[in-house]
Design a protein around this nucleic acid. Sequence first.
DNA 1: TTCTTGTAGATTATCGATAAATATTGTATT
DNA 2: AATACAATATTTATCGATAATCTACAAGAA
Lengths: 329, 329
Amino acid sequence: MAKKSNNPTMNDVAREAGVALGTVSKVVNGIPVGEDYRVRVEKAIKKLNYHINNYAQGLKSGKTRAIAVIMPNLVSPYFASLVNSIGKTLALKKHYMVFFGTDYDPDQEQEYVRLAEQQKVDGIICLSYNPKLNVSDEIPLVSIDRYFGAKIPCVASDNYGGGWLAAKKLRENGCKHVAMLRIASKLPHEPSKRRDGFIAACEAIGLSYDQKILSDGAPYQEFVDFLYEHFHDGKLDFDGLFCVTDSLVHQIRGTLKEMGLSVPEDVQIIGFDGCRNFGDLELTCSTIVQPVDAIAESAVNLILNTDQSKAPSLLCLPVEYAFGGTTRK
Amino acid sequence: MAKKSNNPTMNDVAREAGVALGTVSKVVNGIPVGEDYRVRVEKAIKKLNYHINNYAQGLKSGKTRAIAVIMPNLVSPYFASLVNSIGKTLALKKHYMVFFGTDYDPDQEQEYVRLAEQQKVDGIICLSYNPKLNVSDEIPLVSIDRYFGAKIPCVASDNYGGGWLAAKKLRENGCKHVAMLRIASKLPHEPSKRRDGFIAACEAIGLSYDQKILSDGAPYQEFVDFLYEHFHDGKLDFDGLFCVTDSLVHQIRGTLKEMGLSVPEDVQIIGFDGCRNFGDLELTCSTIVQPVDAIAESAVNLILNTDQSKAPSLLCLPVEYAFGGTTRK
DNA sequence: TTCTTGTAGATTATCGATAAATATTGTATT
DNA sequence: AATACAATATTTATCGATAATCTACAAGAA
């Protein structure tokens, strides 16, 4: 007769320690019991190598130490480093992460939120573009980069300030006329404030600008078209460019190279994100760096601090400029 | 009296459908019951929007639909795309992923394996460098990139073949004398076969080579030293370079640029990994591409196919060469 | 017609931890 | 010395799903 599993239970610990089941439960949960009892129980726990059964605990108490993290994917460096950081922060607080990738699909986003709610996780951290995401109010949810209304706390970079900073830096680097490259977004989300900040700054400091809106998932040709629209007499009619994501910087550089234009000599470029390529390698472009670790920490703290009622509805964290070779300095 | 939670249970479904609890369980688990009963239960499930309680199921059956994934981090593109792909594959098979990041720390690796075992996940997929990882044989474990012995299936790229292919391609591109840049690895793991394949190929095809072993987490200075060792009369004494990871390619390129050397004119470089920078952007270097999706799929299949006894102990998946600008073609 | 057998579905003990209810012990008060 | 009352430990019902056991009823054999 093979024993099915040799994992000791609370009952085993109680027997070993010569105390009652309830006493063990108290010790495990940090509820004060008599000194001698506590010691005996702790000794028994160590001796048997007891560890609590998550499923029993989840079933009975409704509390698990799981947090669901819902993101479009992990191949975009921004998402990857965000999830990486969230995982670390959760581990420090003795929680663990259940990850769901949505590929930006609103149906999947909704599906996973519902799934997470059914699985009774302790909280959900999600970055969703679903316009009408349906959220029960039984499980706390914190949103990243997307404001869903006052009831759901949202954590994001200071995107507006970042856009402003980009314009300021281009001006400081001597640019006379700049352009902005951005993606058409179907939905308003915090990162779209980058353009507002950039435009406001341009107007405030008297820097003339153009902007180009690329279609979502912009094909190569659109980058070419953009550049040719601004290409006259062998050179570009702008000397500074703000791309709302680093990804755009990389894409446009390929085209610039083909046209024989060099960066930063012919045009200075600032991106947005600042996620290091292999974790800690040097930046591949000058950029506005998002405080990924701070965003992750804030999101985790908001999720774990139970009184969501007095949580801020929007938390904007400061960004900074970092030189990465695509500007003069 | 407010009801604490409005999640319906199997009992609620049974009452609604006018059948017994056990019958509902059978329907939910696909065990055949009378046609009329099945229909009534299914109708009740839909009406009440019933979903099974994972914790109750986990407690009773010992089966959960969770797979633990243990990786060093998510900021390295290879790990990130691997985890991304594993998550997708699991989702297709109605499983979900619990992610743990270890930062290469053997203690954390061990800790998370144990934690996962205690949480009674259905399986563990792990990429660990811990030499003496202690694994219970109660829960199936699949290793990626590291061979732990015949009892634990290991999935990896054909690293040896990849190294061989790199040498072959450098030769095809006209290289006369090549060098290899690799990291000193404390532990034997599958990727270290890249160098063996490369060296074997060089010898087989009569291509002369040098190799440089960098210390782990190589500082900038080591790259400089390496290049100066091979720099005579204004040029390098090799015309082809194989870096065992793409990350090394990026690091060495910075130094090459500072020395006024250009790629691929002065030296052609081939890396290893081939993870696209933003998921699907173009490659940043010529490289041996690892079949990340295939690795992920294989690992998931091995984990979910219960009869691990007849699983292969090592599964090597084919790699391919991809041009990325750092070679002639 | 009676008895067996088979084939459903219905009951119920169980998984391991929690917390409310209960029992026990010791201290204080009269 | 007797009673009341804390304070602390033990019992036990419970969470929701599973599966072994039980029950009922129908078809077939004698």
